[in-house]
């Protein structure tokens, strides 16, 4: 039962981190390889705000998400908008961002193992099982953010405009939609959500400068598995991946726990290269 809880918590964090990546992929038609690095920066920022500056956990998380949202805005302005049709350049800039962020993180922490302080202490007993409040809170907030994002995408004008830009950028511009503004909003939301995921995962698994790489791998697989342009696909595959990770880490010792889910996903992609839920699947 503990596995199910872990799986759900991991799953929802993967989904939060992947949403922003998928939004940028769908709307701008390019991949943001720096997404994982920004997720890592969100976690570190949160740690230093509460551990070093003594700010309350939750407030630190909100500040971290807000700061990273602004970073998302800047990224859209100075990178995606200028080089939208130059994939090589975007990849090179992304690699630069990753290198800079990781080097700074390494310099700051050295070899210390840091963990963001717990968001909630104690245990809650549900149906005779003890579950740590930490997990419950993580899952609850994650679910809330996911539902809020779904609401924005499906029921608001911004969501409609997002879909319009994703499906036909020129068509959207001709309806008078300010495509750059919509892209900027999406980058801000996407990177902000990744920061929140980072803040929670930093408390769950601890901080490391390579946590972004691990997450990037998950995000890439998740988005590929879901297929382009599918919101529901991301949620379903995110949950499945959460379960895969949680189960494999229990079932296999050591590094095999991280390798097996990846092997399974590679096999799934061999069977269905376009993903399971995308437009062209």
């Amino acid at each position: 039962m503990q596995i199910v809880i872990n799986a759900l918590v991991l799953g929802i964090m993967y989904i939060l981190a992947a949403l922003g990546f998928a939004f940028i992929f769908n709307m701008l038609g390019t991949i943001n390889l720096g997404h994982g690095a920004l997720y890592m920066v969100g976690a570190y920022l949160c740690y230093y705000l509460c551990a070093a500056a003594g700010i309350n956990n939750w407030i630190a998380m909100i500040i971290s998400a807000a700061v990273l949202a602004v970073v998302g805005l800047l990224l859209e302005r100075v990178m995606f908008r200028l080089f939208l049709d130059n994939f090589d350049r975007i990849v090179m800039i992304s690699v630069g961002i990753i290198t800079i962020c990781q080097t700074i993180a390494n310099l700051l922490t050295g070899s210390k193992a840091l963990v963001i302080p717990s968001y909630a202490n104690g245990l809650t007993t549900i149906f005779g099982m003890s579950i740590s409040n930490e997990r419950l809170v993580t899952f609850g907030v994650g679910l809330l953010l996911l539902l809020a994002t779904l609401y924005v995408v499906n029921y608001t004008a911004l969501g409609r405009q997002m879909e319009a830009v994703a499906q036909d950028r020129l068509g959207a511009a001709l309806q008078g939609i300010n495509t750059n503004r919509v892209s900027a909003a999406v980058c801000a939301i996407g990177v902000g959500l990744a920061a929140v995921a980072g803040c929670f995962m930093g408390a769950y698994l601890g901080l490391s400068s390579s946590m972004g790489d691990t997450m990037n791998l998950r995000i890439l697989m998740l988005v590929m598995l879901a297929g382009a342009g599918s919101m529901n696909g991301i949620i379903i595959t995110g949950t499945v991946m959460g379960f895969l990770d949680a189960i494999c880490q229990m079932a296999f010792a050591g590094n095999a726990g991280s390798a097996v889910p990846i092997i399974i996903i590679v096999i799934l992609l061999l069977i269905k290269p376009k993903g399971f839920f995308g437009h062209d699947a």
């Binding site: 319009a164 036909d168 068509g171 959207a172 001709l174 309806q175 342009g229």
Partner: peptide, 21 residues
């Protein structure tokens, strides 16, 4: 525009409403 540039995966209704953005 030439080639129509509709939003292919959105419903006819949503396409129309987007025209009134």
């Amino acid at each position: 525009p030439e080639g129509r540039h509709l939003f292919p995966y959105l419903s006819v209704y949503k396409n129309l409403i987007l025209g009134a953005t």
